[in-house]
Design a binder for these strands. Structure first.
Lengths: 211, 211
DNA sequence: CCATGATATGAACCTGTATTCATTTCTTGG
DNA sequence: CCAAGAAATGAATACAGGTTCATATCATGG
């Protein structure tokens, strides 16, 4: 045995993998998973198409990796947002707002993660991450219930419903935003956002705790 | 001119078209839009693959037709359910329950209509029908608000959120149900259903009007 | 029963990408 | 610098399923 990958080589490979993921995510952010082809991803990452297969066994798995990374990032951001405030209600409000704001900030990516048609393998992953989304809200809700601010109810189901309500209300503006990326839709969505949050809070928080 | 389609021929054609739609819907109910291929649809309808194209210009349009018919049927059923009761709250409750019950009754179809990845043309249609769904609930909500039973809020947005909440909470049990079609999931989903409805009502109905 | 044209047939064709793989280039340790 | 093996290349291939179209069958009304 005369060859064994040295640290330098391992680094280089790790970098290539990261670049590939980053460029793929960029492509998805621009045109959804539909806009992600192996050839294009390779070109953007300055490698040959065949090389992609040294890093991911198939296109599906590349898509899954992009999806997982991007979604986890969103979940983390939303969870993080629900950390600062003091009352459970405020924390939930912040999380919900964060979810919506971020979706409106990068509509194409949001749509790709939430609702864009994808191949079955990725859809499977999406389904799993739906549960992760719910989980991230569940924690907040359980806390609110324990502290007596929220109405007692099964947290997971409630969390799922919240995610659904937000995703659905956000998808239609999303479609519009994707069409006319030039139009400044912020003023419209700003009050939208407040309304959606209000809807969600009513379903979760005891009336006397809603400001 | 010696040939002009007579009533008999027109009937036969109409029948073939209907059969094609019916069999296609059956296929979708069994395995989603992924399970709908031109060849299979033709076989089930006892016609040749090429003949399909005398009735629908492309697979997309066949899918769209199946989708529209099936979805409209659901919307009608749900709307209908919100007709009998007297109070706005009861009417909304009936509609919501109907939505969920029907979804659980035919999980694969429900999943296909709500969330299954599909080609872009059909996704476009789905987007349009999301709005139809919202519309069908909007009417109920507007009424409830006018009568003072419901909390004032933009009906369309509220309706959209309701649809999203229900769809999302129903999709995960749906996946399970599709996996183990043998297991009797009714007892589990029965209380589920009540919880989801309760969640929705809290977001819409004034507290004093919820029984 | 025939001429005319509509309708049905289904095997062959097309298309767009994901994959593959023979070849080349690069790494490594001696 | 070299042998041995890893990694990269990208043109060629594979593939699946939608779509086409030359041909056959059927319907119509004289």
């Amino acid at each position: 045995m005369v060859y064994r990958a040295t640290e330098f080589t391992e680094n280089r490979k790790a970098q290539t993998r990261e670049r590939l993921l980053k460029e793929s995510k960029k492509l998805v952010s621009q045109a959804g998973f539909r806009g992600l082809s192996i050839a294009e991803a390779a070109r953007c990452s300055a490698i040959a198409t065949g090389t992609v297969y040294r890093y991911f066994p198939s296109k599906s798995e590349l898509c899954v990796a992009v999806f997982e990374q991007a979604t986890q990032r969103e979940i983390d951001a939303v969870s993080q947002a629900g950390t600062t405030a003091h009352s459970a209600t405020q924390r939930l409000r912040s999380s919900l707002e964060c979810f919506i704001q971020r979706a409106l900030q990068n509509p194409t990516l949001a749509y790709a993660l939430i609702a864009e048609p994808v191949d079955p393998e990725l859809e499977q992953t999406r389904l799993i991450y739906r549960a992760h989304w719910a989980e991230s809200f569940s924690t907040l809700i359980r806390l609110g219930i324990e502290q007596g601010e929220f109405i007692p109810q099964p947290e997971t189901l409630c969390a799922t419903a919240l995610v659904g309500a937000m995703a659905e209300t956000v998808i239609i503006p999303l479609q519009q935003a994707r069409h006319d990326a030039n139009t400044d839709t912020t003023p419209l969505t700003q009050s939208h956002c407040q309304q959606i949050v209000a809807f969600c809070l009513r379903a979760v928080v005891k009336p006397e705790h809603i400001v």
